[in-house]
Computed example of a mutant assay.
Amino acid sequence: MNSAVIVFPGSNCDRDLAVALETVIGRKPHMVWHRETELPAGVDFIGIPGGFSYGDYLRSGAMAARSPIMRAVANAAGRGVPVLGICNGFQVLTEAGLLPGALMRNSGLTFVCRPVHLKVENTQTLFTSQYRAGEEITIPVAHHDGNYQADSDTLARLEGEGRVAFRYSGEVNGSAHSIAGIINDAGNVLGMMPHPERAVEAAHGNTDGRRLFEGLLETVAA
């Protein structure tokens, strides 16, 4: 699988994601600077990492969503290329219009940094095929603006179409319907606040995030 990780000024989880991808895939991803206007030829997967792109000025992810490379990312997503946005990457995807809703300030107004329990809601996606429906997994979170919100019609559509991929098992940040991750209507774009790349190796404390990347590799390579 030929992968790419988008890097913005203020990204701080780009290396974490790159190491996770290399560990599972067996080859290093392309590290693509935000000012580039094209993706490397033949990219099969695009990762948008966590961090604080542009220092979270204006709104988290708002400025990064207007970076030149995001037009190429949107075009690739439109062609069916899988795109994963983690934490700040999820914020970027909503700001770019690739996913609905918005990530607001945590309801407790504090930065949350700890492992959390997630329920796997949909296993029929490119990203979740290695999990069991209803399975509870543990993935770390680290965010201040992870409170997912959308209007009632959007929330009803996400639920009705099975587009909630992951849900918090307990209270974490005030997210509507306890949503931790959603997919787009085509099923090839996933945004999630928890960090699966931080749960890939045993040294991380658990490997519940590894299966996300393994499932993606299996699906893309098929």
Rank of each mutant, 00 (worst) to 15 (best):
C87Y: 11
G61L: 03
E38G: 09
G101F: 02
L109Q: 15
D44K: 12
G101I: 01
V120L: 12
K28Q: 15
A72F: 04
R35W: 14
G80E: 06
L84K: 09
Y54A: 01
P68F: 14
Y54N: 00
T23P: 00
G101A: 07
G101N: 10
K119I: 04
C113V: 09
G42E: 11
G97I: 08
S53F: 11
E36W: 10
V24Q: 11
G78N: 00
T37N: 15
R105K: 15
E36K: 08
N122G: 03
R59L: 02
P115I: 09
I25H: 14
G101Q: 08
F52E: 01
N106Q: 10
K28S: 15
G50Y: 06
T123Y: 12
A96S: 11
H34C: 07
L58M: 15
P100N: 09
R35P: 02
A102I: 11
G42T: 01
N122Q: 10
L103I: 02
E95P: 00
V43S: 03
I86Q: 00
A20E: 07
D16G: 01
H30F: 15
L93M: 07
R35G: 04
S107M: 10
T110I: 09
R59T: 08
G42V: 01
N75W: 12
P49K: 04
Y57F: 12
S107A: 13
S60K: 15
A102E: 11
H117G: 02
A64I: 05
G89F: 12
P40M: 04
S60G: 13
R71H: 14
R105T: 10
D16I: 01
M31V: 10
M70L: 06
V92T: 00
D16P: 05
L109I: 06
G61R: 02
G61D: 04
A41I: 09
K28I: 12
G89L: 08
V83Q: 05
T37S: 15
R35F: 14
C113I: 09
V83M: 06
V81D: 01
T125E: 01
L17H: 09
A77S: 05
G55R: 11
A76V: 01
L21W: 13
S129N: 09
A102P: 04
K28V: 11
E22C: 11
G108I: 07
G101D: 07
I69H: 06
V24G: 06
L21H: 10
S129R: 00
V43Q: 00
T110A: 12
T125G: 04
A41Q: 15
R114A: 06
G89V: 05
A96P: 04
G78D: 00
I48T: 05
G42F: 11
R79W: 13
T125V: 07
V43T: 08
R71Y: 13
Y54L: 01
V120H: 13
V24I: 09
A96C: 05
K119E: 12
L58G: 09
R66S: 09
N106S: 07
L93Q: 00
P100T: 03
P100M: 07
V24E: 07
A102S: 12
G55P: 03
L118W: 13
I86N: 01
Q91A: 04
A62K: 15
A76I: 02
A74S: 07
E36F: 06
R35A: 13
P29F: 06
Q124N: 15
R79T: 06
N75D: 15
L118T: 00
E121D: 11
L21M: 11
S67T: 02
T123E: 12
S53N: 10
R105A: 08
